[in-house]
């Protein structure tokens, strides 16, 4: 991660709004829109080195554990919490719950997949399951722009683009799943409207 930080700064460059709303200690949950593998690296680079080992991206096991090298890199270097997207019994979020009990900070992409670059899709409900179980843990929404342009899904060539990050204010569980999900989705959509982005199509 010591290497990644200057690479993120020179290769991309970050414009961040409302940085002070980022959690400074665990347990906490960060949710963000997902367009690129770079998302995780960029979010991790926002945290001080001392906190880094406690920030855990939640990621798909079928993708990141598909070969031993990738699995080693994902779990040992990045420190992901792998979850099974197709479950056969058992609670797929078990490890995520465990991490929160250890006062760690989770990164969750509720869209579930990187999808079409620079477009938002409907959120999956996993985040509400976590929040319902830990109603006192704050959920901080982030909106990221530009990384889908720099390294979109299905493309191996990296092209430098500045990355805009908008940090929203933290939310707490409100007792009703659908309403809560709608609120989080609306908040990220609002964050995306704060920016003035050049066209890209």
């Amino acid at each position: 991660m010591l290497l990644v930080r200057p690479l993120v700064l020179i290769g991309l460059g970050i414009n961040i709004r409302n940085r002070k709303a980022l959690p400074t200690q665990g347990p906490a949950v960060i949710i963000a829109n997902h367009n690129s593998h770079l998302d995780t690296l960029v979010i991790l680079s926002l945290f001080p080195l001392s906190l880094l080992s406690r920030v855990r991206p939640v990621a798909a096991a079928d993708y990141f554990l598909r070969n031993p090298f990738l699995a080693w890199f994902a779990t040992k270097i990045i420190g992901i919490i792998p979850i099974q997207r197709a479950t056969k019994g058992g609670n797929p979020l078990h490890q995520a719950f465990e991490a929160l009990r250890n006062n760690e900070i989770l990164i969750i992409y509720p869209e579930g997949s990187r999808g079409v670059p620079e477009e938002l899709t409907k959120f999956k409900k996993g985040i509400s399951l976590i929040s319902k179980k830990f109603p006192e843990i704050p959920i901080t929404p982030l909106f990221l722009h530009g990384l889908g342009k720099a390294l979109p899904k299905g493309d191996a060539v990296f092209v430098p683009f500045f990355c805009d990050i908008f940090v929203g204010n933290a939310q707490l569980w409100e007792g009703e799943k659908d309403l809560f999900m709608q609120k989080l989705e609306a908040q990220i959509t609002d964050l995306s409207k704060q920016g003035h982005f050049p066209e890209w199509d």
Partner: peptide, 26 residues
């Protein structure tokens, strides 16, 4: 120069189809 070009290309509208072209520009 690199940082200035990156700033410029992040600021202007670009086309999705041109990612590789921008790569060559860099």
């Amino acid at each position: 120069s690199y940082l200035a070009l990156k700033e410029y290309l992040s600021m202007i509208p670009t086309r999705r189809a041109d990612r590789r072209v921008l790569f060559w520009a860099y």
